[in-house]
């Protein structure tokens, strides 16, 4: 079995978030991880098109807009990853026959884009005041060619990596809600990445907590 040496690379880039920065959406947030930044806007619960109506729960639509050009296959797959995570955490049955729209606009991609999308989505959903069974966050891990695990990789680290994994982790039990992987890796490596992601998720949830506390505090 390959022993993973916990490297110095197991760190998260500086991250930041601003909520309620757009006036039109019901909830909005922009999440920054290093240079990667994503803006998210949520509309809803609102009326739904008859063709998309689901009788016992809300219809969630996720749209990802790239920075350059029109949305393509890559964006579709990201949309699906985010939608499935949100559907798992949102209490959609509270709003039957209504629509929720989550729009993600990529502002800059410098690696770990999907995890940044997930974090921005969660912050926006929180800002919109939608009921959720748990919060979620995204963590990206890259395995370099030497077998080193790097969390929150930059674009250059992503490019050099042998495998890239993104996990959505819930806040209640730190379980994996969604995973999206690329490249080849062993079961051990996968487990190690999950374990590290769970550890890293604690940091992000602490950040969520801090930002909410700050928001509802009376002074800065």
């Amino acid at each position: 079995m390959m022993e993973v040496s916990p490297s110095e690379n197991v760190s998260l880039r500086e991250f930041g978030c601003e909520q309620t920065l757009l006036s039109r959406p019901d909830g909005s947030a922009s999440f920054v991880q290093g240079d990667t930044s994503v803006m998210a806007g949520v509309y809803g619960p609102a009326e739904v098109k008859v063709s998309k109506e689901i009788y016992d729960r809300a219809t969630l639509e996720v749209l990802v807009y790239p920075k350059v050009g029109l949305p393509g296959v890559r964006e579709r797959s990201q949309e699906q990853c985010v939608r499935e995570t949100c559907e798992a955490s949102l209490l959609l049955s509270l709003h039957p026959r209504s629509s929720l729209t989550l729009i993600l606009q990529v502002l800059h991609d410098a690696g770990s884009l999907l995890s940044c999308c997930l974090n921005a989505a969660c912050m926006a959903l929180m800002d919109a005041g939608l009921s959720m069974s748990c919060l979620f966050c995204g963590v990206t891990c890259a395995i370099s060619t030497e077998g080193e695990i790097i969390t929150d990789p930059t674009a250059a680290q992503e490019k050099e990596s042998r495998a890239l994994m993104t996990f959505a982790i819930d806040s209640k039990e730190h379980r994996v809600m969604m995973s999206s992987t690329r490249g080849s890796f062993s079961v051990q490596e996968l487990q190690q990445c999950i374990a590290i992601s769970q550890k890293a998720s604690e940091k992000i949830f602490q950040f969520y907590r801090d930002s909410v506390r700050r928001r509802y505090s009376k002074n800065l």
Partner: peptide, 28 residues
């Protein structure tokens, strides 16, 4: 990333944080 205002209560920023290494090895 630099344009996020610091003085708003809706915004928060953290510096680069390393994930606690002590626990990781054991949990892994």
């Amino acid at each position: 990333a630099e344009s996020i205002p610091q003085e708003r209560i809706t915004a928060l920023k953290t510096d680069q944080t390393s994930v606690e290494m002590t626990g990781v090895g054991e949990t892994v």
